[in-house]
Design a protein around this nucleic acid. Structure first.
Lengths: 149, 149
DNA sequence: TCGAAATCATTCACATGTTAATTAATTCAT
DNA sequence: ATGAATTAATTAACATGTGAATGATTTCGA
């Protein structure tokens, strides 16, 4: 008799629905989608990143990421480059055009994020972020112990 | 200089990534996807629901929901029926086969949900759900006040 | 009551998510 | 050194998400 709307997954979806549209409105002004933003946001910090690592950082599954990078590449915002030492690896890096976007998009995004934070009780904001981090650390660590001892 | 991985959206995605795979493993046994589960889960409680209302309850946007219902209908789990009083409205209801799934799927889902809850500190679980509910109530109520006074 | 505006479902075009399979390259034990 | 596992990226097939537009109906004000 779990209240469906009050279940953890539905609450998470609901929160995302509250939060994401504000950011997407910004991205749209620059012809970006939210996953594309996540990729660029990462590349602005890391110079060049292997696709598999990029998938891990952005939480975009590799098969999806291939397409995201395809379109970013098509639009001249990122470039692929085969690693010389391990030719299985593909490095992704922002182009000058891709890098230049940071100065335009970041301020707007940071602004909206600040407004979002300001729209709730400070204690609630802290409690929510703290709880999410703790949960992501603790949850479901009950099936990979065979190697621990 | 917001830590990207520690931002609210990324934390929410991370939590979903922790939680959903366990449930999807169950759904797969019955040939269901997670959105399809959400629709059935709703119809088990509500007899028949207009598509637009179903979209609201399941948090599935209407254009997506049309396809979800198409496939559930194709598989004989739900049925469409035009409202007689308002012919714009389409009622969705579970078929006998769709209803029968509840007895098989629900116990497994409830079990996994209970295990998930049990995998973290009880206080953390409460704090997380409480914070999410409060946030969804409070966040971003700063732009629809013109009619309040 | 008639026509403009609103509503509901759907379609369209495109982007992304999900799983399994595939291909090329590398690692590793023998 | 060589062939069986591993690993990285990609492809394939399908389902869903996103935003704008469409078509059929209903509502409502002039």
């Amino acid at each position: 008799m779990l209240a469906f709307e009050q279940s953890l997954p539905m609450l998470l979806y609901q929160t995302l629905d509250r939060v994401l549209p504000r950011f997407r409105a910004i991205f749209k002004q620059f012809g970006l989608t939210e996953p594309q933003w996540r990729v660029l946001r990462t590349l602005w910090e890391r110079e060049h990143v292997a696709l598999s690592e990029l998938a891990g950082v952005t939480l975009i599954p590799a098969p999806s990421l291939v397409g995201v990078v395809d379109r970013l590449s098509r639009d001249g915002l990122v470039e692929r480059q085969r690693s010389a030492t391990d030719r299985r690896v593909v490095w992704i890096q922002a182009t000058p055009r891709g890098s230049a976007l940071e100065a335009q998009v970041r301020p707007l995004v940071d602004q909206v994020y600040a407004e979002l934070e300001a729209s709730v009780d400070p204690a609630l904001w802290t409690q929510l972020l703290t709880a999410l981090k703790a949960f992501n650390r603790e949850a479901g660590n009950s099936e990979q112990q065979p190697d621990a001892a």
